[in-house]
């Protein structure tokens, strides 16, 4: 028996909640307006005798905390460290959706890309090469149609693989300007002492350089509440 926590992230209107309902058999309301999923929904499913808790994060275009939704999604991935974060994207609008994927890959290695609405893409003569995306992004990719419950089994297999460590990922990392990369290198050792591998060092460093006060406050609270202030 095993217990895993799986977070669902994705842009609004990518069918995240439809997938959530398909997997959990729940009937969480799915609909078409922003801010629908402010409070995360939780549900369970089993696969190959493993128990999985699924967390439906708010749909966001970004995780840079422009809103309460983004903050909720970001904090969950950073602080609650799900075993796998599944990024659900719209097959007909990959270009914009991949923005969020790259942001998630800065935050965690434990990720799976789920390309939803693949039936809709086929209708529009859009062909997506899962294998090439897998190579480029360094994480497992599964194309599905949550609506028609197609491709779900392969998705669950890939989630299981990452959760159990049977699939080793090597996520694509965004490279910044030379100056920026130098700054990151200089700062990272100090950040590393504070977060001690609990949180993604490079990402926290980027937030520091970004001057993201709200995130720093949240981080401070977390580190403080865990009674671990020796290095702060």
């Amino acid at each position: 028996m095993s217990d895993f926590r799986i977070a669902l992230a994705g842009n609004p209107n990518t069918g995240k909640s439809t997938l959530f309902n398909a997997l959990t058999g729940m009937n969480q309301h799915t609909g078409n307006w922003p801010g629908k999923t402010v409070i995360q929904a939780k549900g369970n499913y089993t696969f190959n005798e493993g128990n999985y808790t699924l967390i439906d994060l708010p749909g966001t275009y970004s995780l840079y905390s422009n809103s309460a939704d983004e903050e909720t999604a970001r904090d969950y991935i950073i602080f609650d460290r799900p075993d796998v974060t599944v990024v659900v994207v719209d097959a007909t609008s990959l270009e914009r959706n991949l923005n969020l994927v790259l942001q998630v890959l800065e935050m965690t290695d434990q990720a799976v890309l789920c390309i939803n609405l693949i039936d809709e893409a086929k209708k529009r003569n859009i062909r997506i090469y899962d294998d090439r995306l897998e190579k480029k992004l360094g994480i497992p990719v599964a194309s599905i149609s949550a609506r028609n419950k197609a491709g779900i089994n392969l998705l669950l297999k890939k989630i299981e693989g990452v959760a159990k460590g049977e699939i080793v990922t090597s996520p694509y990392q965004v490279k910044y300007s030379e100056q920026m990369e130098e700054d990151i290198q200089r700062l990272e050792p100090y950040v590393s002492q504070i977060v001690k591998g609990k949180y993604p060092t490079r990402w926290v460093t980027l937030k520091l350089l970004d001057g993201d006060r709200s995130f720093m406050d949240h981080l401070y609270q977390r580190v403080f509440s865990e009674g671990d202030v020796s290095h702060v």
Partner: peptide, 11 residues
């Protein structure tokens, strides 16, 4: 700042 970020995120 945040507005630039937001517009880029939206496409």
């Amino acid at each position: 700042g945040a507005m630039l970020r937001r517009l880029l995120d939206l496409g």
